[in-house]
Simulated scan of single mutants.
Amino acid sequence: MSAVLAHRARRRLARDRPALAALASLVLVALACLIGPFLTGHPPERIYPDFVRVPPSLAAHPRSDELRPALQRLAFRMRASLEDVAQEGERVRLTLTAPKPIDERSLRLLPRSGLFGEAQVLERSADGRRLVVEAPIRRLYFLLGTDALGRDLLTRCLAAGRVSLLIGLTAALAALLIGVAYGAVSGLAGGTVDALMMRVLDILYALPFVFFVIMLLVFFRAGLWLVLVAVAAVEWLDMARIVRTQTLSLKSRDFFRAAIALGAGTGTILLRHAVPNMLGPIIAAATLLVPRVILLESFLSFLGLGVQEPATSWGVLIAEGSRALESAPWMLAAPAGFLVVTLVALNRLGDGLGEALDPRLQRGPDQRDSAGR
């Protein structure tokens, strides 16, 4: 019977085009976050001092007007002066002069800058104080611009998505396991045990979440694992209430009473009768739990209590972008766009799963199939 119900749920979900569009959007976002940072051509931590707060553009950098300032800064670090610059296609020829002989090892600064390839010395004066050097120009693209340190914002958003999705899925999974076990045991036990377990939930509900996180920071260092522990420690409360309510409803069903009458153990009843019959509401609630966790992590990171550098998340990027909203609005728009798309898609997918897995919402052909069987 469960296979039949699963087949009908898949059919109902397949007819829900907004839910399928949300699922496709989530798959694209997840694949982009996993593979994208390797394809952008920029390591997430790579800093380009010459391109700080560059606006989003399809144009390649460095442009012709950006070559001389970049080369002047590199020449200064070489302890030399830039006498002349000439661009020939995708290569640049520069003339360096200095009061002392120029050490050719300093030319390594050109490829290290990320803007140029390996340099070749074309001419060298007898005293070594004048060099004519040629190097290929590397073309850099910043499709979503750069941040306040000169890091590619697209790469940062994709790398941050890994952390945000990891926190959302891991914390939601932990909350799912704890909440299902706690709620099922409470509903199945009933009586005094149920009342006592519910009062424990009430006490935990009364604890302010931010105060709880601050207390954790007193004993532990802020970081990714602290966020996971803090979020998972509170997000299972709602799941426990949902599962308890479903368990109390199932206890009045004949198959549940028959299992108890036949002497089935508590573990068997939970695993073979309670949890499978609550799978629909549980999956729907878990899907809606992920965006709540991501949003909560973003809130903590915005306050500076969440993910810390060098790691990053959408919440951290949004916090950085809010501080540069007037001068560089793209720093806020880029991570906020990723976050909004993910949250909307997760919520819509959760609604679709809830409708597809709820047998009371069967319509049309499904009802006729049920009657025919």
Rank of each mutant, 00 (worst) to 15 (best):
R199F: 01
A126W: 11
W314P: 00
D238P: 06
S125I: 06
L332E: 03
W236G: 02
G117D: 12
W314D: 01
Q120W: 12
L248F: 00
I283Y: 00
R93K: 15
A189W: 11
W236S: 03
P329R: 09
L270W: 01
L176A: 10
L74I: 15
L349R: 00
L332H: 01
V200Q: 01
L226D: 02
Q367R: 10
G41E: 07
P101M: 05
G89T: 04
L131A: 11
M215Y: 11
A22Q: 04
P18C: 03
L107C: 12
L173K: 04
M78F: 14
S125A: 13
L279Q: 02
S301L: 10
P281R: 01
S25I: 09
L154F: 04
V344D: 01
S81P: 08
A264R: 13
P281V: 02
F51P: 07
T146K: 04
F76C: 07
T268A: 15
L196D: 02
R156K: 12
A160M: 05
D50N: 11
V275N: 03
L289Q: 12
V213E: 06
G337R: 05
V133N: 10
L343Y: 00
A160C: 04
S25T: 13
S327N: 08
A75S: 15
F299E: 08
G191A: 13
Q72L: 14
I102M: 10
L5G: 14
P291D: 01
